[in-house]
Design a protein around this nucleic acid. Sequence first.
DNA 1: CCTACACTATTCATAATATGAATAAATATT
DNA 2: AATATTTATTCATATTATGAATAGTGTAGG
Lengths: 159, 159
Amino acid sequence: MNSVGSSSNGEFLKYQITKLQDLINQMVGCCEDKRLYQSRRFDLPYAELRCLMLFRTERYLTVKGIAQRLDVAKSRVTKLISGLVRKGLVESIEDPKDARVKLISLTRKGKEKCKEIEVFQLEIHEKILSQFDPEERGHIMRALENLTMAMETVKANLT
Amino acid sequence: MNSVGSSSNGEFLKYQITKLQDLINQMVGCCEDKRLYQSRRFDLPYAELRCLMLFRTERYLTVKGIAQRLDVAKSRVTKLISGLVRKGLVESIEDPKDARVKLISLTRKGKEKCKEIEVFQLEIHEKILSQFDPEERGHIMRALENLTMAMETVKANLT
DNA sequence: CCTACACTATTCATAATATGAATAAATATT
DNA sequence: AATATTTATTCATATTATGAATAGTGTAGG
């Protein structure tokens, strides 16, 4: 009995593992599609869009600060900023306190685009949550929180 | 009272929306790190690794079939296959029934690498699930399933 | 003061990821 | 047999990204 029980539990666990893989892949795929959609809709390479959205919470950013936040090389940021400047979405001035650094900020056009994108992102996540009643919403949020924590734990023990 | 209640519910919903955004971003970020890790560990560009893993379930694949499964252009597949052939992981023969198509399959070395990667992927997902007791596991799986479905629904109504 | 060191941003070479038009060869259709 | 379709490849182009080398600029200690 015990061995039979163990075996069937093992089978079920294996099923759950595969299912988890599939669900995570599907979710990540869904987010990739969201990126492509946003890129087309807001007519911006996704990397530039991501860069633009940093200014939601910060008025001025430096190349170095952006590189840290996006977790990319500084040389990459130089390129992204030049694209955003060309499109008239951000502008770059010299820091009056330190001639080495450049302070980058949104133009009026950039602020508008940033707001537009923010609204879009809030809307889609609202549409996701609105498919559940408040109680279920709570369950899902907690489950997602626990799952994400578990994933981070595994990641931390990987290296 | 009613208005106060509604307002605080609205606040809470807004909090949940932001939280959902953050959690999804964190999860996707975690998966991106997993990709980078796998790429380094198995010494393969991630796109080639992904291509290789298609042969878990299929003995022979054509360029066209791979393009459909990976959702990329055929020209991209040609490049991926040439990389995998150069590394001795796959080989390509002509279809005896149709001289236009090439049948691509794993070499012995390719089969070994594929198996290695599969084991790694099962292990990490097992490590994720093992952090929960069976009951909680069920809750999380169901929540993730519902959330994924909700996300697909929103995606479908996007275009 | 001024030299040595550190910091900031940029440029350049390189690579991975990907698309789409044009093409060549083989097969299907009429 | 002529025409259309299918399959894979090549080529030009774009996006995403890194890292080494470089040019100014700032700072701390002698």
